[in-house]
Design a protein around this nucleic acid. Structure first.
Lengths: 192, 192
DNA sequence: CGCGAACCTAGAACGTGTTGCAGGTGTGAC
DNA sequence: GTCACACCTGCAACACGTTCTAGGTTCGCG
């Protein structure tokens, strides 16, 4: 029918990620129930666990994919702005808006991000690396800038981004301040 | 015996926090099991839930207390250093060392910090405020400094602190880099 | 005193993540 | 051909956070 055995297995993994994302979009982290994910992907529960060892790893895999997609999209439409500070602000603003567009999905993935499992570390590292790469891409655009401690700056910006996402996800931000504004202000402090 | 009824209730709450902290110290977040907390505090499970509506709120209450204690201790021993950057580095280093001394407790509390419950927001805000106050106390020491955007700087430093704690708690940091060093470098970038 | 409110206990019960088991089925080695 | 193996299904079972129930005790107020 659809192809070789390996292809079917790959298709199942795709369906599982899609099912998890769909359920997250509908009801957030708690709505991503393993029995439901398996059912929606038309797969047995045991099979789901064969491919993704836990709920958090499933969501992290989905997040890694989404982070990679986000990076590609941002590379396609290069940032507006002359100074590094302006470009970083622009990119982080766009990225934040994109994440805010599906709040339940984003929050579900952030919840998974704060899992304590040893086994989740590689996935988290991958995600972390991708997000930092998004920033580094942009700061260094055109190679025309020389900051004494570029790595340090990128690290700080990554931390601020992560913290802002977490605050936003918990509803800790005063309503007046948006992620985008706070990120722009941090970029200004560090690069401006 | 021990006193009035209200005093006994208060004592129970103290015992509950102590039990939770002790269990966290022994086995981390997962070892803080509600049945065990109740048993160790010699209190019925229902009573535990009467005082702390969830495991995360229990741990957050413990964390709020610990944050307040940390702040007091830091106020008592004022920081070393002439420049704001040096003072902030010093304080954050000391605080990090203090938190690293009981890694399981710290990690358990950070896990609770990333709970998504609505009801946990006030507690998280309180903790967040205390931690930022620790930084603000020190930057502003002696009132002798004028930064254009002091609030923004404190906010960024707080974010970096939070993110570093989270990375450390997940084991995401390359072994060579310690929280203390990364925080000092961020302080240097922002204040130096 | 007598009563209601607030609090406590013991323990059963429920939901959901996770694991385990007892088979089925297709694939590649020999 | 057939054997081993990897993968799948369906389902039972377990653990722990959380909720609920049924009843007991203490406090303050008329």
């Amino acid at each position: 029918m659809t192809g070789t055995r390996a292809a079917e297995t790959a298709a199942r993994k795709v369906r599982l990620i899609a099912a998890a994302t769909a359920l997250a979009a509908e009801g957030g982290y708690e709505a991503v129930q393993m029995r439901d994910v398996a059912a929606r992907a038309e797969v047995a529960l045991g099979t789901l666990y064969r491919h993704y060892a836990s709920k958090d790893q499933l969501l992290l895999a989905a997040m890694a994919q989404q982070a990679a997609t986000l990076r590609e999209r941002l590379v396609l439409r290069p940032p507006n702005g002359d100074t590094p500070s302006a470009r970083v602000s622009d990119v982080l603003r766009r990225a934040s808006r994109s994440l805010e567009r599906s709040p339940l999905v984003t929050k579900a993935m952030l919840a998974a991000m704060s899992s304590a499992e040893e086994a989740a570390i590689p996935l988290k590292l991958e995600i972390d690396t991708t997000l930092r790469a998004i920033i580094a891409d942009v700061v260094d655009e055109g190679h025309c800038t020389t900051f004494a401690d570029l790595d340090g700056i990128v690290r700080v910006l990554g931390s601020v981004w992560f913290a802002e996402l977490t605050y936003w996800s918990s509803g800790l931000n005063p309503s007046s301040s948006s992620m985008g504004d706070n990120l722009a202000s941090a970029a200004q402090l560090l690069l401006g």
